[in-house]
Every structure is written in C-alpha cells, then in structure tokens.
Computed example of a mutant assay.
Amino acid sequence: MSVDTRSRMIDAAVAALQQRGVAGMSFTEILSTAGAARGAIYHHFPGGKKELVAEAALRNGADVRAVLAEVPGDSPVAVVENFLATVRPVVQASAAGGGCAVAALTVSPEDEQLREIAARAFDSWTTALAERLIAAGVPDPGSAESLAAMLIGLLEGVHVTCRAAGSINPFEQAARAAIELVRVRYSPS
C-alpha cells in the first residue's frame, strides 16, 4: 500500500511539473491528487520537495525514453514521421497549458542536481531515438545522433511555442520542415 502511495505521489508530481513547474508545485496539490495523508510526504520523500521533484523527473524521463526506444519505422523518414505522431498528443497538451516535466527542472539553474537529472534524461532520449534511426537506415551514428538531438530540441522548443501560441500550429510547421529535411537527406534517389 505504501508503495502505491509513493507511486501516486510521483505521478501527481509529474503532472504538477507539467502544468506549473517546480516553483508552482505544492505539497497540498500532490497530496490531494494522490489521495495521500500529510505524513506521507516525509515518510516517502525525506528529502522533501527536491527529492519528490527528482523522482518525478527520473520516472518521466525513463517513461519517455521507453516510448522513444519503440518508435517504429523501417526508414529514417518513417521513424521521424512516427516520432512526430507519437509526440503530437503531448504537444497538444502543451498548447492547452502543459509542458515537459523534465524541462521544468532546467528553470531552476541554481540546483545543479536537478539540472543534471534533466540533462541525463534528454541525453537518454537522444540516444534512444538515434538507435531507432540507425536501425532504420541512417548509416552514420554521428548523423543519427545529430538528427535525434534536433528532434528532441524540436520537441522541447515546441512545448514552449505551442504553449505561448495556445495552438499546435508551431509544432505543425516544425514537423513539416523536419520531415522535408529528412526526406531530402534520406529518401532513395
């Protein structure tokens, strides 16, 4: 039962980070969303808010990496198209006021440990996507990693621009450009 409470608290923290970031996240909200008693905070997270935020980002980072490691496609273009289709619902949530739970950690640059957690998560996402691109036919690992980094950068950037615009249009524009670039570079002649 206590593992369940801890897990629910982490899930609630991920959602709070996506909506309000680290500074806007409150224990009252986490406890209410998780259906946990007040004493659960320091029982499960003796390090307080920082520990809860770190655990939420670690879980969210691992979950995203697992999804990216399974992006289907038998060509680089198909992998990019499927990546964009996979992240589209997440970006739609950004247009409605959401965001990236991992990126929320980078807004507190004074906390080096949280920034490093975010950096490792982004690196793992890039690696997972690069591995999919290599498996789909990108011949050079360096090119696959560069393309993957561009796609992760596109994802993180459109979280912000779609949230600001209140629409998914910035994502649609960036997605069309990314697909066109990959088609030009990796489609058979």
Rank of each mutant, 00 (worst) to 15 (best):
A135I: 03
E70T: 07
G39R: 06
A37G: 11
V160E: 01
L147M: 14
R6Y: 05
V22E: 05
Q18R: 09
R88F: 06
D140T: 01
Q92L: 13
V77A: 09
C162P: 03
D4C: 04
I179P: 01
V90E: 04
V80K: 11
T5Q: 11
V80Y: 09
A62T: 11
V138A: 07
Q19K: 11
A165R: 11
E116N: 14
A175V: 02
S167Y: 03
S143K: 13
R132L: 08
G35R: 10
E131A: 03
I10P: 00
A54Q: 02
R88Q: 13
L114I: 04
A121S: 14
D123I: 00
A66E: 05
F83H: 05
A37F: 02
V87R: 00
Y186V: 10
V3H: 15
A66I: 02
G21A: 09
L52R: 10
S7Y: 08
V158G: 10
V79P: 12
R8H: 00
F45H: 08
S143H: 15
P188T: 15
R163I: 15
L58A: 05
W125N: 00
R183W: 12
G137T: 13
R59I: 09
I179E: 11
R20H: 15
F122Y: 15
G99T: 00
G153P: 05
P141S: 14
I41C: 13
S75Q: 07
A93G: 14
A66K: 06
A62F: 05
A149R: 15
P139H: 13
L58I: 08
P139D: 11
S167I: 01
F122H: 10
A95C: 02
A23M: 12
N82H: 07
V67A: 11
A175Q: 02
R132I: 01
A34W: 08
A36W: 12
E116M: 13
R185G: 03
A130M: 08
L154N: 07
V90A: 14
R8W: 08
A178V: 07
H159D: 03
G97Y: 06
E180K: 11
S146H: 13
A62S: 09
V79E: 01
A174V: 10
D11Q: 08
F27Q: 12
G73Y: 00
I10F: 08
A85S: 12
T86K: 01
A15R: 02
E70I: 03
A130V: 07
R6W: 04
P170S: 04
A95H: 00
N60Y: 13
